[in-house]
């Protein structure tokens, strides 16, 4: 019985299928931040980075009803504070989500008036946090990435004495 050789088209189809499956497999388990990855052009921040420097009690919540309680808990966490230092280039030394080492992050303004905190460059990218409220003694952030936001919630920082 003659054995026919697969056509060239067959080989390309197989290769293309493997690529497609591989790409789908990767995407299936990684956060999709379609809009957030691109971000928006950063403008100068209206918030000075010095305002973030210091020792902070940190707590988080997922539901607005827990906000007040979370703020009180953040205040109680000053025995184990999160320390933010000034960076060498005008930013602040903080951790990105899931990174064990701090790096210099920058406050970035945007045309919409929102302020973001993250690596230099575009604003509102997946690695960024948005500063949703700030006063002399506290600030509140929301993660831009839905995945980070889901895991870490809205985080409240209360300045420690």
């Amino acid at each position: 019985m003659p054995i026919s050789m697969p056509s060239t088209r067959y080989f390309f189809l197989v290769a293309a299928s493997i690529f497609t499956v591989a790409l789908a497999g990767c995407n299936a388990n990684q956060p999709i931040d379609a809009g957030a990855q691109q971000g928006v052009p950063a403008t100068p921040s209206k918030i000075a980075s010095e305002r973030l420097v210091g020792r902070w009690g940190v707590a988080a919540y997922h539901q607005d009803s827990a906000r007040q309680r979370t703020e009180a808990e953040a205040r109680r966490q000053c025995s184990n504070p999160y320390t933010i230092k000034a960076g060498q280039n005008g930013g602040v030394l903080m951790h990105l989500a899931d990174q064990s080492e701090p790096q210099e992050l920058f406050l970035k303004g945007s045309a919409s008036g929102s302020t973001y905190l993250g690596p230099a460059g575009m604003a509102a990218v997946a690695a960024d946090r948005e500063i949703v409220a700030i006063s002399d003694n506290s600030f509140t952030i929301k993660w831009v990435s839905p995945d980070n936001s889901s895991r870490y919630g809205t985080m409240v920082y209360i300045r420690c004495p």
Binding site: Y61, E73, N80, M155
Partner: peptide, 26 residues
């Protein structure tokens, strides 16, 4: 119930909140 990450977890992931209010995902 609320959740407080154990100290060894804070050591590994210093950016974690020290307190997370109870709710789905906690």
């Amino acid at each position: 119930p609320d959740w407080r990450p154990p100290p060894e977890m804070i050591q590994r992931q210093p950016y974690l909140p020290r307190f997370m209010a109870g709710g789905p995902g906690n």
